[in-house]
Design a protein around this nucleic acid. Structure first.
Length: 466
RNA sequence: GGCGGCAUAGCCAAGCGGUAAGGCGCGGGUCUGCAAAACCCUUAUCCCCGGUUCGAUUCCGGGUGUCGCCUCCA
């Protein structure tokens, strides 16, 4: 079985062959930390985290680098508006980013380099581009000479001449050509700045990624990923910068996730429909959000709406319920699975086939539901062997973990003693066939958020809404 | 104008040459003291028109619709 990934560069699914056996070097463009992240930022974080988990599941050692852009125009604007320094704002939202993404069960990156901590490498990189004639300084700015890079446009599949119409020169810029882009921007009075051979200023947006990839992962990496909007110009420019200097491919595979829409509209500030993860996870279980994102193949657009999210609540709940019910039956079971089990292996194989196909999480999730169905059937019979139930539990645990979906929920394991007393009181009432009393107690508990379910193996409870 | 994606049941979403996975929802049933959970049954010929083929949702051509990139953007 071979893993295939869709490469934007070739517009084809290609067999993944790592540079170094057993290792994956991947770089995912991270956020500009001037605000809380929105769900559009969450998608690459979740899908590429899932890719990373899958690589690890398949035995690869993954070096996962994702940057923080902690200085740029938007941060400077935010700084002026709030009368806070750029680093203060950046630190605040880096912290918020890590919290949000942590709630979505995104594993920590191997490293999250910051632009401001990569300044020597950035400046050196620009210097070399000037030395080789790919860049030029002009009044304190430095620009990349786009037309000099012969492969320009190969990622976005655009010719330089087609791009020309969209390019423009802002007032105050001193570009030789409208297509050129900034590597270094001279500081205006009062702006945060760093010293450089071309005067005080700050890096352009694209150069930090080129410098960081080189610094942390090397001249050629396996995977470079980000949102589809980054194909042009961001990643195109990164290629121009890095490959002009290194004369080798910057990345073998370029992966891009599709965008999120809100009620079938583009999410944008002007429409006013931007949803922050910070707010969304107050309303929905963050894992439901993750689950929802993974129900769609990562390259396709996803529409967000309360209706769709509520469907996801139900669907994910089904998975959690079966897992919980398995645990309920296995409370006193300390044994093992039956060992090698053909059926469990067949689930695993189907899961791998799905994920091998460019991380088809939608199909991978359908395997989870098939396991759930079979496990539920096994659960129906009172004399199913615990070892079999345990096998179901294990395979569900193993595969859902690859997707970063935690089916176990620690918060459900603790029950107040008075609630326990009420459950016992109801059990006594049921034994005495005082069903009216039993039902009253059950209603009371339900209002307190505890839902009871009577099973042949005793009463089972879970937390519910209202 | 250049480049690209998408169009599958009420909704979401896989499949991509051999008459349609999965989930949510609806309806019917089973189990239950009643519920809940669960299980069973039920819910589609895949935007339209041509073409290739023994055979197309799946390939090719042409439409229509829709979304996106080309300017900061995940």
């Amino acid at each position: 079985m071979t893993l295939k990934v869709y490469n934007t560069l070739t517009r084809k699914k290609e067999v993944f062959v790592p540079i170094e056996k057993g290792k994956v070097r991947m770089y995912v463009c991270g956020p500009t930390v001037y605000n809380y992240i929105h769900i559009g930022n969450a998608r690459p974080a979740v899908v590429f985290d899932t890719a990373r988990r899958y690589f690890e599941f398949r035995g690869y050692n993954v070096n996962y680098v994702s940057n923080f852009t902690d200085v740029d125009d938007r941060l400077i604007h935010a700084s002026q508006e709030r009368h806070q320094s750029v680093p203060e704002i950046a630190n605040q939202f880096i912290k918020a980013f890590l919290a949000d993404v942590g709630a979505l069960n995104v594993k920590k990156a191997t490293i999250n380099p910051r632009a401001t901590e990569t300044m020597p490498e950035i400046i050196a990189f620009i210097g070399k581009l000037i030395d080789t004639g790919f860049a030029y300084a002009a009044d304190g700015d430095v620009y990349y000479r786009t037309r000099k890079f012969k492969d320009y446009g190969k990622l976005s599949h655009q010719s330089v001449d087609d791009l020309k119409s969209g390019a423009r020169i802002e007032i105050g810029e001193n570009k030789e050509d409208p297509l050129d882009f900034a590597l270094w921007k001279a500081a205006k009075p009062g702006e945060i700045k760093w010293a450089s051979p071309w005067g005080e200023g700050r890096p352009g947006w694209h150069i930090e990624c080129s410098a960081m990839v080189e610094k942390y992962l090397g001249e050629t990496i396996d995977i470079h990923a980000g949102g589809t909007d980054l194909v042009f110009p961001h990643h195109e420019n990164e290629i121009a910068q890095s490959e002009a200097l290194h004369h080798c491919a910057m990345a073998h595979y370029w992966l891009h996730n599709g965008h999120i829409q809100i009620n079938n509209e583009k999410m944008s500030k002007s429409i006013g429909n931007v949803i922050l993860v910070h707010d969304l996870i107050k309303k929905y279980d963050p894992l439901v959000v993750r689950f929802f994102i993974l129900t769609v193949q990562y390259r396709h657009p996803i529409n967000f709406s309360d209706e769709l999210l509520n469907d996801a609540v139900q669907a994910f709940g089904r998975l959690k319920t079966v897992f919980y019910n398995l645990d309920h039956r296995l409370k006193d079971f300390a044994g093992q699975t039956d060992g090698f089990d053909e059926k469990m292996e067949s689930y695993r194989v189907r899961f791998i086939e799905a994920m091998d196909d460019d991380f088809n999480t939608a199909n991978a999730i359908s395997v989870l539901f098939d396991i759930a169905k079979d496990a539920n059937i096994a659960l129906q019979s009172a004399d199913t062997k615990p070892a079999l139930l345990f096998s179901y539990r294990q395979i569900l645990f193993e595969l859902s973990d690859v997707l970063g979906l935690k089916l176990e929920d620690q918060t459900e394991s603790i029950l107040d003693s008075d609630v326990e007393a009420m459950i016992e009181k109801r059990e006594a009432a049921r034994r005495d066939k005082q069903f009216a009393l039993a039902d009253v107690i059950r209603d009371q508990l339900k209002k307190a958020g505890i839902v009871l379910e009577d099973t042949p193996q005793g009463v089972r409870w879970k937390r519910g809404r209202e």
